[in-house]
Amino acid sequence: MRDLAQKWTAVPDWHQAVVELSGLAVRSRAGLHQYLVSGNLDAWSSASGLPTRGAGAFGITGGDRYAVQVARDRVLVVSATPLDIGNGWHEQGFGVTEISAGLHVFEGEGPGLPELIARATPVDPYRASASAAMLFGGVNAIVYRYDAGLRIHVDRSLATYLWSWIGTAGMPVAKS
């Protein structure tokens, strides 16, 4: 019987995995609490204390808790600690869904980041765009700056693919 599992790239050990190329280091980031918040974002802001609008494409974030805009009426909240606001619909007009298990997070840093971004997406990293959701390396992802680095959230089922893509696309191009 054929072993079809051999057709797929083995899932890396995310605790140890690192892509280190010239001027670029990308690692997996575990332990973050992630929530999708949809609906009335003004009401969400009043309840949570976070801004109504999250960071957009390549927007700058930092700290232990922040929000990233993924649609007109939806933000992804990323937090080092669990939220005090529970999952489910809230009568103020917004819904909260924990998605920590659904999205894998990568962190990149180094002077090679602009070149990686240029290969991953035509979106201009220096032009404001309201939503951080984009096609990155051919798959849907949420991409923004965190301090001096870059954070990429991707569906967990696509994490191994994107990891392979970064390792390949991040390689320097041979110049003749």
């Binding site: 649609a71 035509p122 979106v123 201009d124 032009r127 404001a128 765009s129 309201a130 939503s131 096609l135």
Partner: peptide
């Protein structure tokens, strides 16, 4: 590039 009313200019593949 296509203009999304919310995001602004984005590549047509999106």
């Amino acid at each position: 590039l296509f203009p999304c009313p919310f995001c602004g200019p984005r590549p047509e593949t999106e």
